[in-house]
Simulated assay, not measured.
Amino acid sequence: HLGYDVESPVWRHWVRDMSAHHTFIRYDERGCGLSDWDAKDFTFHDWVTDLESVVDAVGLERFPLLGVSQGGAVAVAYAARHPEKVTKLVLCGAYARGRAVRAQSEDEKRAAALDLDLARVGWGRDDPAFRQVFAAQFLPDGTRADWDAFDQLQRRTTSPENAVRFLQEFAHIDVREQAGHVRCPTLILHSRNDHRVPMRYGEELAALIPDSRLVALASSNHLLTATEPGWRVFCDEVDAFLAD
Results as ranks from 00 to 15, higher is better:
residue 31 G to K: 11
residue 96 A to Q: 03
residue 170 F to E: 09
residue 125 R to T: 14
residue 102 R to L: 01
residue 157 T to G: 11
residue 194 D to S: 06
residue 219 S to G: 12
residue 148 D to E: 07
residue 15 V to G: 07
residue 88 K to E: 13
residue 219 S to V: 05
residue 3 G to P: 01
residue 49 T to G: 11
residue 116 L to T: 13
residue 69 S to P: 12
residue 67 G to L: 10
residue 9 P to G: 06
residue 221 N to R: 11
residue 62 R to I: 00
residue 238 V to G: 05
residue 29 E to T: 10
residue 18 M to P: 00
residue 214 L to Y: 14
residue 215 V to K: 01
residue 160 P to H: 10
residue 17 D to E: 15
residue 228 E to T: 12
residue 38 D to C: 14
residue 14 W to H: 11
residue 189 L to V: 12
residue 59 G to D: 04
residue 39 A to V: 13
residue 212 S to W: 07
residue 88 K to W: 06
residue 22 H to W: 09
residue 25 I to V: 14
residue 98 G to D: 11
residue 196 R to V: 11
residue 106 E to I: 09
residue 83 P to H: 09
residue 228 E to A: 02
residue 161 E to Y: 03
residue 149 A to E: 08
residue 18 M to W: 08
residue 153 L to E: 11
residue 70 Q to K: 04
residue 111 A to D: 09
residue 154 Q to K: 02
residue 44 F to M: 05
residue 193 N to K: 12
residue 219 S to T: 02
residue 202 G to N: 00
residue 45 H to V: 15
residue 192 R to C: 00
residue 98 G to A: 05
residue 129 A to E: 03
residue 154 Q to T: 14
residue 70 Q to F: 12
residue 14 W to L: 14
residue 123 W to N: 01
residue 148 D to F: 00
residue 126 D to M: 05
residue 172 H to F: 10
residue 179 A to R: 00
residue 228 E to P: 03
residue 28 D to I: 14
residue 121 V to E: 10
residue 147 W to H: 13
residue 232 R to L: 06
residue 191 S to Q: 00
residue 171 A to V: 04
residue 75 A to N: 06
residue 179 A to G: 03
residue 97 R to W: 06
residue 96 A to K: 03
residue 16 R to K: 14
residue 140 P to V: 03
residue 212 S to G: 08
residue 141 D to S: 15
residue 48 V to G: 01
residue 67 G to C: 15
residue 51 L to Y: 07
residue 23 T to A: 13
residue 61 E to S: 14
residue 159 S to C: 02
residue 96 A to Y: 01
residue 194 D to Y: 04
residue 172 H to R: 13
residue 91 L to M: 00
residue 208 L to Y: 02
residue 161 E to N: 09
residue 194 D to K: 10
residue 43 T to H: 03
residue 62 R to H: 02
residue 206 A to H: 08
residue 151 D to A: 15
residue 82 H to D: 12
residue 142 G to K: 01
residue 205 L to N: 08
residue 150 F to Y: 09
residue 221 N to E: 03
residue 210 P to K: 07
residue 166 F to Q: 03
residue 51 L to S: 13
residue 9 P to T: 09
residue 152 Q to L: 07
residue 86 V to K: 02
residue 137 Q to Y: 08
residue 122 G to R: 06
residue 233 V to Q: 14
residue 220 S to M: 03
residue 173 I to D: 07
residue 173 I to P: 04
residue 36 D to K: 09
residue 235 C to Q: 10
residue 210 P to L: 02
residue 169 E to A: 04
residue 187 L to G: 12
residue 167 L to T: 07
residue 31 G to V: 09
residue 210 P to R: 05
residue 101 V to R: 08
residue 129 A to C: 06
residue 17 D to K: 11
residue 143 T to K: 04
residue 42 F to A: 08
residue 214 L to V: 06
residue 63 F to P: 04
residue 32 C to R: 12
residue 218 A to P: 06
residue 216 A to Y: 10
residue 84 E to P: 02
residue 32 C to F: 11
residue 25 I to R: 00
residue 154 Q to W: 07
residue 32 C to I: 15
residue 227 T to D: 13
residue 150 F to L: 11
residue 154 Q to H: 06
residue 45 H to Y: 10
residue 144 R to W: 13
residue 99 R to D: 11
residue 116 L to D: 01
residue 47 W to M: 09
